[in-house]
Structures are given as structure tokens and as C-alpha cells.
Amino acid sequence: MKNFIQPGDTLTVPAPSGGVDSGDVVIIGSLIGVAGSTAAVGVPVAVKTKGVFELPKVSAQAWTIGAPIYWDGTAGNATTVTTSNTLIGYATEAAANPSSVGRVRIG
């Protein structure tokens, strides 16, 4: 097909304000992914937009499989709280209260 560009599961974008570390959640507009490397602000960085990632979470929350997960950019962690946060995906397995990480399907 002559109009196919790429699969789209990894995109190269300029690192957002503050730069990124490998494994950081990256949100640019409505584009959500996880940085594949460390990059200073504005430097091109590969961002994985599909897959399951282990991310830092609010320790005092219990997650169930399939629960919608949001990113709290201020706290720098994943949460089930919708207010002022960005939907990034869904929990792929239960996460206990307390626990510091949870697995999230992005894309």
C-alpha cells in the first residue's frame, strides 16, 4: 500500500519540557508513550506508544485487571484518580495496596 508510513508502535518525538529519562511516561498533547532512552528537552527520543509497562503508582491504591489508569504529571505516578489526570491505559494485572508499581497497557 503506497500510503503506509510505519507501524506506529514507536514514534520519534522531541523530548518535552524538562527532558525525559528512559522509562518515563511521555505525554505530548493526546500522544501517550514511554521513553526508550534519556533525552534533554527538544532532543529527538523514541517513544513506545503500545505495550505493557511497569510504572510507578500511588502506593495506597489497589488496582483490578482492566481498571482505567491515569497519569498524575504533578506526582509523577499512575493512579485510578481521574481528576486533573490523563488516561494512559488499563491495568493488566491486580496491584495490591500497598505497592509501588503496577502494570499498564498503553495504546
Score class of each variant (00 low, 15 high):
L55K: 02
V58T: 15
P44Q: 04
S84K: 10
V45T: 00
G19C: 08
A67D: 15
T74F: 14
L87K: 08
R105L: 06
L87F: 10
I65G: 00
I5P: 02
S99T: 14
K50G: 00
P44L: 12
G89T: 07
S100W: 10
K48C: 04
A62G: 05
T64F: 04
L31T: 11
I106D: 01
L11A: 08
N85I: 02
G89D: 00
V104D: 11
A96P: 06
D21I: 13
G19F: 09
A35Q: 02
P16K: 09
T82V: 10
T79V: 04
D9I: 08
G23S: 11
P56E: 06
I5K: 13
P16Q: 07
T64P: 01
Q61D: 14
G89W: 04
Q6C: 08
V58M: 06
V20R: 03
K48T: 10
K50R: 13
L11W: 07
V20E: 03
G76H: 15
T10R: 10
T80I: 05
G8W: 07
R103Y: 10
L87V: 03
L31I: 04
P44S: 13
T10N: 07
Y70P: 04
V81R: 00
K2H: 14
G42F: 11
Q6G: 09
P68T: 06
L11E: 03
G51R: 04
P68L: 03
K2C: 12
G36I: 09
A40H: 10
A35M: 05
S59K: 12
K50Y: 06
N3I: 12
G42L: 15
T64Q: 15
S84N: 15
A91M: 04
V52R: 07
F4L: 15
R103D: 06
R105V: 00
Q61E: 15
S17Y: 07
T64A: 15
S59R: 14
A78Y: 02
T38D: 11
V26E: 00
G107Y: 09
G66E: 07
A75C: 13
G8I: 09
S84Q: 11
V104Q: 06
G42T: 12
G23I: 14
W63H: 12
G51A: 04
P7K: 13
I69T: 07
S37T: 13
G107A: 08
S100R: 14
T79P: 02
P98E: 01
A95E: 13
V58C: 01
A39C: 03
A95K: 06
V45G: 07
V25L: 07
